[in-house]
Design a protein around this nucleic acid. Structure first.
Lengths: 238, 238
DNA sequence: AAGTGGTCTAGACCACCGG
DNA sequence: CGGTGGTCTAGACCACTTA
């Protein structure tokens, strides 16, 4: 935990406790620097975090205003992105179960080779999981990962959290992801496992996720029941 | 244009010109600082930009690797977000036309009052536009904006770019937006204007956009033909 | 052990906003 | 005009990777 992260956390807490009130201005950066006993650049970095998370908005020559937007909830925050669905659901006190539909190893097709930067001889895991939240089918996930990068996957890991395994057990650092979100028609799999009607729309999130070392480690299609889940994001800049 | 933005642009150009080659490491930050005659913190900020845009990825103790991911194209870059659809399409040399379906003023309903933080007596514009790209119906946009914040809207502005008007003519600064993306069924409007079939899915992007001063200035629903357009994003962190 | 990027300092200058 | 946040410097220390 760096200084600017700690300070951001403290200020955030003050906003939530109404020590700093919505619609008013934060103390200026110099005063905050004095209070926390750090340089102003460190305060600036802390405020940048709060900006990205939508808590405040700064204007040069004016100050930093405290925002309050009722429709933002925790799972919107970009912070929670890479802890995986398991973590998100736990935080909302919702029960998640993962049913393994299939779990195989194969050589990658051409399209997968391109997306995951693989040769035809590098095997991949092909995983299909049904994520069930509070006993309702929620998301059907088709996931492909290179075996050499994510070795020793087991049923137990798949039933828990792959993301936890990658970051904590393998110690790999996630850089981010490319996503494409589409509306499509339900296919046979969706009808069978998500219990969709044949005429139902499906929200499909196609994702390629990357490690810090530049290698893509996941290519996935998440198919979401249209009446159960949307994709939500908060996109704030300086 | 700040120093770190200029430097980021130069390095980006070198990557695109293969002066710095994909898969190799960037010169270290101290060397770059010497070369550009700036302090290392400035180089660090420049590299942060390139990281967010997906060009490089840094690892402490190792270096900054140059990435190249074939599926990323310009309209994925977060930079182009707030120049509006008109600008994006122009960059891709695609022709965009906007047909005004309706353009009215009214008092806001309860839900709109909440989203846009308005009293019942503050009037709003209610705009419905059909965006036509290369002569095909593309997106049906339902937009609501407070009259006091975005005054003097005209048909001419609506046919061009509202975002250009807000930023350049009114001089307002955009902070960001909250979005929720869903798959839904086509409704009567979609069938009539997007020329959907009644059984077609529709990709709906609900958005509340905010100014730096904290006020929401736009509540919109963009309804996209499912076979014409997806929502794409690149989400990279440090 | 040598080299890397991440953080942090204590200043400074400047662009911008408000009255 | 005074006060604000954005940028920038020339150092420094530290965490981390690779060998």
């Amino acid at each position: 935990m760096t200084k600017y992260e700690s300070i951001a956390a403290v200020i955030k807490q003050r906003i939530q406790d109404n020590v700093y009130q919505t619609g008013t201005l934060l103390p200026n950066q110099s005063d905050l620097a004095s209070e926390f006993g750090v340089s102003r650049m460190t305060i600036n970095k802390a405020i940048n975090i709060l900006t990205m998370e939508g808590f405040v908005s700064s204007q040069r020559g004016f100050g930093t205003k405290i925002l309050n937007h009722p429709l933002w909830n925790k799972d919107v925050s970009p912070v929670n992105e890479y802890r995986g669905l398991s973590f998100q659901m736990a935080e909302q006190h919702r029960q998640i179960k993962s049913q393994i539909i299939s779990f195989e190893v194969a050589f990658p097709e051409k399209k997968i080779q391109e997306r995951l930067m693989l040769t035809p001889q590098q095997p991949v895991y092909q995983i299909v999981r049904l994520r069930i939240v509070d006993d309702d089918p929620f998301i059907l996930e088709h996931t492909i990962m290179p075996v050499d990068l994510i070795p020793n996957l087991t049923d137990d890991i798949l039933k828990e959290s792959i993301y936890h395994y990658i970051q904590f057990d393998l110690g790999l650092q996630i850089a981010g992801a490319y996503r494409n979100i589409q509306a499509t028609r339900a296919d046979e799999f969706d009808i069978k496992y998500l219990q969709c009607q044949p005429t139902d729309p499906v929200l499909e999130v196609e994702q390629v996720a990357y490690l810090k070392n530049g290698r893509p480690f996941e290519y996935s299609h998440s198919r979401n029941r249209f009446d159960k889940r949307g994709y939500t994001e908060l996109d704030m800049r300086n």
